[in-house]
Design a protein around this nucleic acid. Structure first.
Lengths: 160, 160
DNA sequence: ATGCTGGATAACGCAAACGTTAGTTACAAT
DNA sequence: ATTGTAACTAACGTTTGCGTTATCCAGCAT
């Protein structure tokens, strides 16, 4: 990547902590926070399910959800099981859903470089079955939304 | 996102720590590590420049570079300034350059949600000037490589 | 040889995040 | 009213990462 003319001398300017990437990393500061977001994309909504599926402790999830609520990435939604009291479940806000490229690009890189070519899961367009990728492009390619993505499992990983 | 039929019951299976996203987060574990990668994309190669431009301490950069070297994301390259001894500079490997979607998607989200619509920097295709975006798509849109991206500054942020 | 300098790291105290344990809350059941 | 339970959360000791300081190391200069 090249800087435009007046930015070439990197010692002559700074945006300091104004950098968007840096700011995001202050919100998504820990691995647990990221994994909660991942589980949200996978459809997990309830506290104990986050704990079980991430394989972490309840306080870690509690702290992560607190941060994510504060950041406007997840929002609590009341629900009521018959015969139980009302509780909160946690759902991605629009801002949260817009983290999809972050999530998928991490996944994509890991699939390429950490799985020896055998990604456990793959993501395809529900309607067409075409594989989804994250692309850096200037083209106005039609973007696939969360709701139109289906997750499939690599047979090599599948043991019912 | 929906799981394919046999994955619907989330309590009946688990890929545990095989998840690519989780594995990547073990490598890119800290904010400093991410920021070093960011600086690599911005063309920074030398130890002291990382320290100055990230605004962190030398040992933090040392630790981050050690991790990134071990992960194969940056590689040391010898260089020699006239009148000085040979030293290492640090450059992204191919694997490192493939983190571009991760970096840009973080930036893009931050630009949208943490900058009140005034992103400090924007990324355009060098040849055409068209703005670059990270897209989740099944379309075979042509991808723009690192080397074809130019970084421009938002006038509101510019104070030479 | 001795000192000097830029590049990088070890040592160590401090702060942040983790997991274990224990406690709290808001109900349903009896 | 009392007990039971699911869903959290506070308290707290341990681990991990950070920044400050001090040190090391290689090679150029004298």
């Amino acid at each position: 990547m090249k800087f435009e003319e007046r930015l070439r001398d990197r010692d002559a300017w700074s945006i300091g902590d104004g950098c968007s990437a840096g700011r995001v990393l202050d919100l998504l500061s820990t691995k647990t926070v990221f994994l909660v977001v991942r589980e949200c994309f996978y459809g997990t909504t309830r506290f104990d399910d986050f704990v079980a599926r991430i394989g972490t402790s309840a306080p870690a999830v509690s702290r992560a959800l607190k941060q994510l609520k504060a950041a406007g990435i997840v929002a609590p939604v009341l629900y009521r099981e018959p015969g139980s009291r009302a509780r909160d479940e946690y759902r991605l806000t629009e801002a949260g859903q817009d983290l999809l490229p972050v999530f998928l690009s991490l996944m994509q890189w890991g699939d390429t470089y950490l799985q020896e070519g055998r990604p456990p899961l793959s993501f395809v367009e529900t309607d067409t079955g075409r594989p989804i990728r994250v692309r850096v492009t200037a083209d106005a390619a039609p973007e696939t939304m969360c709701d139109d993505i289906e997750i499939r499992v690599n047979p090599a990983w599948w043991r019912g």
